[in-house]
Design a protein around this nucleic acid. Structure first.
Lengths: 195, 195
DNA sequence: TTAAAAATATGATGATCATCATATAATCAA
DNA sequence: TTGATTATATGATGATCATCATATTTTTAA
């Protein structure tokens, strides 16, 4: 059990703040001074923790992914313990009204929140993004009890992320939750026999 | 045939430049002075054409959508004239290697390029985004010869946009074109009997 | 307790940005 | 051609931003 040093704890606190900001406002809206202030620190001290803003973005994206994975793990365990099939549980959690509305709060999926910026990232941050995507594909494959091929798992992942992103884009109209609900039910039905 | 006034032509030129920039660099990276310079104008004159930067973003997103729709229409007409089924043609065009690589050039899909920012937009621009999404759903439904329900058309649209976005996020790795090709072939197969 | 080391704060620099008031240039109607 | 109108340019303002050199505070080790 490695106790975190003071500096490591501060580092983690900065990451947590940064992860929240990029999920809510996007990569470009993250201002170093802002992150530090919201972490209870002054902005000049930032460079004792990160070599520059890009380094923070890369770590923050990874942190956001880890946060989401942990919350997902807990939600999945809960639903599975209630007797829901793993893949069904995943679909229902990912396309839940809660996840639709959690654009800004909590630990929503960073791929849905930031995915269209991935191709614009610098190499280091893009590598982190790639790992997040692969982690989703692997998780889906695992939840299908390896029934789905890697490509099929990618396709379902694409559908889930695309549907959530589009529904969020329609938020405020009736269409948002109509499409989301229909997608959720259709996918649960479609994948019900393969797990 | 309404001839465009000088001002209207300039307005369109600014929009074209802005559409190119947001597709390539994202909404936040668009700088007014930059748009004007790349349009061959000085930045101060901007406010004779748009009330502010947000107004430009809203119009530029609409312009990008119209550009993409036009290019898509042409590509579809070409493929359909060669005997390809409409929905198959759409899937193959949308998930083509060309579209994967056209993040920055040409008239690629603005939803794939900007979709994760949609929920963050101001009301006016978000309304434009919503119209773009609905247009895609309607187009898919139309290409299915109305065989697909609106919800099913939304789901296919989500899959296409999600798959392109994720593949772009993996660009530079082997996985990108592997997943893209597999997705394209799987979807063509899956939707081959319903058109 | 005190010196050394580590962590954080202060304050500044140069760059970029949206916006706008005003000036010049281009167009058009008489 | 001339005057009026429209379109574009000039130049400035205040705000925000990443970065960093240096100072202060806090922690750690003796």
């Amino acid at each position: 059990m490695t106790a975190l040093s003071k500096k490591e704890m501060t580092h983690q606190r900065i990451l947590q703040t940064a992860a929240k900001i990029i999920r809510r406002d996007g990569f470009d809206s993250l201002a170093v001074a802002d992150v530090m202030k919201q972490s209870g620190l002054t902005h000049g001290g930032f460079y004792a923790h990160f070599s520059n803003r890009d380094a923070l973005l890369a770590e923050a994206l990874g942190y956001a992914g880890a946060e989401s994975a942990e919350v997902l793990r807990q939600n999945l365990a809960q639903r599975i313990s209630e007797g829901v099939q793993p893949l069904t549980a995943f679909i229902e959690i990912y396309l839940s009204d809660e996840h639709l509305n959690n654009c800004t709060e909590g630990a929503g999926c960073p791929v849905a929140a930031l995915g269209s910026d991935f191709f614009r990232l610098d190499a280091t941050t893009k590598a982190v993004a790639g790992r997040l995507i692969e982690a989703y594909v692997e998780k889906v494959q695992q939840l299908s009890n390896q029934t789905l091929s890697r490509e099929s798992a990618f396709l379902l992942t694409s559908t889930l992320i695309g549907a959530l992103q589009l529904a969020r884009g329609l938020k405020g109209t009736d269409q948002a939750s109509f499409y989301l609900t229909a997608s959720r039910e259709d996918l649960v039905q479609r994948y019900s026999d393969i797990q």
